[in-house]
Simulated assay, not measured.
Amino acid sequence: MRFLLLLFVPALVHGFSSSFNYGCQNGKCTFQLVVPKEVAQYINENTLSSEISQIASDIGKLNNTITNFSDSGATNFTTLFNSSYSTVNDAAQSLNTNVNAALQNSTGNLEKANLCLQSLQVQS
């Protein structure tokens, strides 16, 4: 039904000196379909009113959805993530520094132990 109406509207506008007026201002849009009497007599006002009410309801639902999924959630997540990341990253960097220092110490101690073993082998 809606598809047929979409096909029928251009024919109305062109074939019967009809007009389709629209405009948007301050975030509000208005639409007006002007048709001659010869065509208007075949329009079921109850069906038209019902369709317009359904469109208005769908637009309201869409606006509510947009409000519910606004960008504030993403911003809050990013802020919390970055603060947690900084804490974890700082701890990881510190741990990495400590591990590298321990590795250097153990390598130095291993070299000393090898020198001691070599000197003991030479003395024996």
Rank of each mutant, 00 (worst) to 15 (best):
N82D: 06
T67S: 09
N63K: 14
L95K: 03
D90C: 01
F77Y: 12
T47F: 08
L48E: 05
Q93H: 04
D58R: 05
S53N: 13
N76V: 10
N82T: 03
G60N: 13
E51N: 07
N64V: 01
I59P: 00
A56G: 01
N89V: 01
D90S: 15
I59N: 01
D90H: 01
F77V: 01
N96C: 01
N63G: 07
V88Q: 03
T67K: 15
N89G: 02
S53G: 03
S50Y: 09
T97S: 09
Q93S: 08
N100A: 12
N76S: 12
A74C: 13
S70D: 15
T65G: 06
A102N: 06
A102K: 11
L80R: 10
F69H: 05
I52G: 00
S86R: 10
L80P: 04
D71S: 09
Q54H: 08
A102L: 14
T65A: 08
D71Q: 11
V88C: 01
N63E: 12
T79L: 14
A74Q: 08
T78G: 04
S86H: 07
N98V: 10
A91P: 00
N82Y: 10
I55M: 12
A74K: 14
D71A: 07
A101C: 03
K61S: 11
T97D: 06
S70T: 09
T79N: 14
I59E: 00
D58Q: 15
N100Y: 02
I66G: 02
T75N: 06
T75H: 04
S94Y: 00
S50Q: 14
N76I: 12
S70V: 02
L62H: 08
S86A: 15
S83M: 06
S94A: 05
T78W: 01
G73A: 05
A74I: 08
A102C: 02
I52F: 00
I52E: 04
N64T: 10
S84E: 10
G60Q: 12
A92C: 04
I52A: 06
A56N: 15
F81V: 04
I52C: 00
T47P: 02
Y85Q: 06
N68E: 09
T65I: 13
E51R: 07
N76C: 05
A74S: 05
L95F: 11
V99Y: 03
D90E: 08
N63M: 11
L80Q: 15
G73M: 03
S94T: 14
N63S: 06
F69A: 02
I59K: 04
S84T: 13
S72V: 13
I55Y: 11
V88N: 02
D90A: 10
L95C: 04
G73C: 06
